[in-house]
Design a protein around this nucleic acid. Structure first.
Lengths: 218, 218
DNA sequence: GTATTTTTAGCACGAACGTGCTTCTACGCT
DNA sequence: AGCGTAGAAGCACGTTCGTGCTAAAAATAC
């Protein structure tokens, strides 16, 4: 009854992570709709019953996987945000750190591509499947918070943000940056041969430059 | 054998359109994965065999529906583009026409929302289903062409676009606008309570203003 | 009228899905 | 040793899906 199975629990958690990564691989290569229990079990080298031993239902597996990818993305963003705030305000190093932070949201390498693809798939699915809605909202809030802080940093030295109109302008800029990032991510996933990592970087730097030049003459 | 059944063809085409609109309604409310033959037949008030009489297979129905929504969107964009080019370059009327054109890509009313939702669903599905890829590429080319012309119009009076660097800058600006539009559309579909039509319009005008101010000091 | 073709409807099959349930193995604890 | 639980695997049921096929019904041609 009262069994302290610490190594057992660790093993179980590791197995869950293995299954979750099988889900990621399937979503990245064949899409979310192919992430069935049988496909996931095959990809993980297990039987359906074994997967169901760790996840009571298909929904629970998907929600848990969604949470894992959200944690990964948010974790990267927050450590990158620490790097941004560690640099001098307005310095070239901070500029590079900001670029690096936003790059975490784009499929610039294999690992980022898997996360971005899985994240996109779950967010889109959350429109239909209510069980995914809480995680989708959590990820949206977290990313929006980071981007909001970024916009405040970028517009710190300029006039604005004092009155209500300035606040609204900052919210608009944050939403605009957020939309551009998601659109860029989407294009990079849907047209990888055209929207290369270089193209993403160029568009991103252009956007940051336009934000800076637009912030000055308010 | 040699039967001239002009009204019959019209009727058949009308039926196909009815079925396609049933597909649209299902995708908008329940997602693309629920757009099965049985669901579509139910929504259209027909039997599965009847739907299959007009569309040989499920794939053919989906590809045809994709083409219809692409035609709708591209048609709206091109007529809006004619309105833009009919106005004086740089005039407030042209500015309004440009805003109206880009608004055609956003779910600002019920009809636009259905089209945008269906378009997004098919484009995302095209990453996995190769049969949808040609239509996805066609829509991408058409929209990119319109947005590219728009960027050229917006930067006509400014310096740039002469040398190779200027051309690349224009391409970057076009891709940036395209990404922002898709991201806005996506946010409006996923978070309609937050990304309202008013919010979309504000972000869009902010983006156009930033493009104008960024174009001048090249 | 009859004959032909389009239209509509339905059946049946195999495949894939989630899920409740049972079985077998192996290890930890008393 | 004996027991109990977690882990792993599999079976069976009902549902949904696409699709090949057949059959009634309606419209049109002769």
């Amino acid at each position: 009854m009262l069994k302290i199975l610490v190594p057992k629990i660790v093993d179980a958690e590791a197995r869950r992570q293995e299954v979750v990564h099988a889900v990621f691989r399937i979503i990245a290569s064949d899409g979310l709709e192919r992430a069935s229990l049988r496909e996931v079990a095959d990809e993980a080298g297990l039987a359906v019953g074994s997967v169901r031993h760790y996840f009571a239902s298909s929904d629970e597996l998907l929600v848990f996987s969604f949470g894992v990818v959200v944690d990964r993305i948010v974790g990267r963003l927050e450590s990158a945000m620490a790097a941004v705030e560690g640099e001098g305000s307005g310095s070239p190093e901070q500029h590079a750190a900001i670029l690096s932070l936003l790059g975490q949201l784009l499929p610039l390498d294999e690992e980022l591509a898997v996360d971005a693809c899985v994240w996109m798939a779950f967010r889109n699915a959350a429109r239909i499947k209510p069980v995914l809605a809480p995680e989708a909202e959590r990820s949206h809030r977290a990313v929006a918070a980071v981007v909001g802080r970024l916009v405040m940093i970028l517009n710190k030295e300029s006039t604005g943000g004092q009155d209500a109109d300035g606040q609204q302008a900052l919210v608009n800029e944050a939403e605009r940056l957020l939309a551009t990032m998601d659109g860029l991510c989407m294009h990079a996933l849907l047209h990888p041969e055209w929207m290369t990592a270089r193209m993403c970087s160029d568009v991103l730097t252009a956007h940051l430059r336009s934000m800076e030049s637009a912030a000055a003459p308010v």
